Simulated scan of single mutants.
Amino acid sequence: MRDEFWKTKRLEEMSGEEWERLCDGCGRCCLHKLRDEDSDEVLFTNVACRLLDTSSCRCSDYAHRRRRVPDCEQLTPASVRAIDWLPPSCAYRRLAEGKTLLWWHPLVSGHAETVHEAGISVRGRCVDERAAGPLDHHIVTWPGEIPRRRAPIKETS
């Protein structure tokens, strides 16, 4: 039987290991964002942090990321509730809002690849910040959306 800790514990009650397991590996939070000066709206870009491994959608230097990228946000239960730029697909955000994890999340599916198969991850959809040029040339909406794809139909025997 699978340990479904995210169903029984509040964010504040999770161990460090459980907290880290909530990350689905989509990489969306590692995309640069802009904020509209007039409306305060968050504008997503398809420009990835230089530390994001765009194949695995994981940080290439997670242990030292905050030293190498000083504005890298360390997620905590309190910050998750305050940050307005986490994508709606984010497990941290979903749980903080009282929602469930979606079918493609590795904790639900049991497979790390489902986040990519479902079209949630940034794999194949982003540009490295070192090659991007001006961020305002890379504004996109998809990081702030949940794709409408449904779970694959399971074959029965």
Rank of each mutant, 00 (worst) to 15 (best):
R150C: 08
I139S: 08
I139H: 05
V140T: 11
P152K: 03
R125K: 15
R130W: 02
A132H: 06
D136S: 09
R130N: 13
P143K: 01
G124C: 15
P143D: 04
G133Y: 06
G124A: 14
K154A: 12
P152G: 06
G133F: 08
G133R: 05
I153A: 07
G144P: 02
P152S: 08
V127I: 15
E145H: 02
K154S: 09
V140A: 02
E155Q: 11
A132K: 04
I146M: 05
W142Y: 12
P152Q: 04
P134I: 13
R150F: 03
V140D: 01
E155D: 13
D136P: 00
E145K: 05
P147Y: 08
R148C: 04
I153Q: 11
R125L: 15
H138Y: 11
G133M: 11
E155K: 07
I146H: 02
K154E: 15
I146C: 07
R148E: 14
E129C: 15
I153W: 06
E129S: 15
D128P: 01
T141R: 10
I139M: 10
P152H: 05
R130T: 15
I146R: 03
V127F: 00
P134A: 13
R148G: 09
D128M: 11
E129R: 06
R149S: 11
L135W: 03
I146S: 03
A151I: 09
G124R: 09
P147G: 07
P134M: 11
T141P: 00
L135T: 00
I146V: 13
V127E: 10
A131D: 13
G124V: 15
V140E: 04
G144E: 07
A151C: 05
C126N: 03
R150I: 09
G133N: 08
A151F: 07
V127T: 13
R148S: 11
H138G: 01
R148Y: 01
T141D: 14
D128L: 13
E155A: 12
P134N: 11
V127D: 10
G144A: 12
C126Y: 09
A131M: 06
P143Q: 02
R125P: 14
D128N: 14
R130G: 10
C126I: 08
E155N: 07
T141W: 03
C126H: 07
I146K: 05
G133Q: 06
P143T: 03
A131V: 08
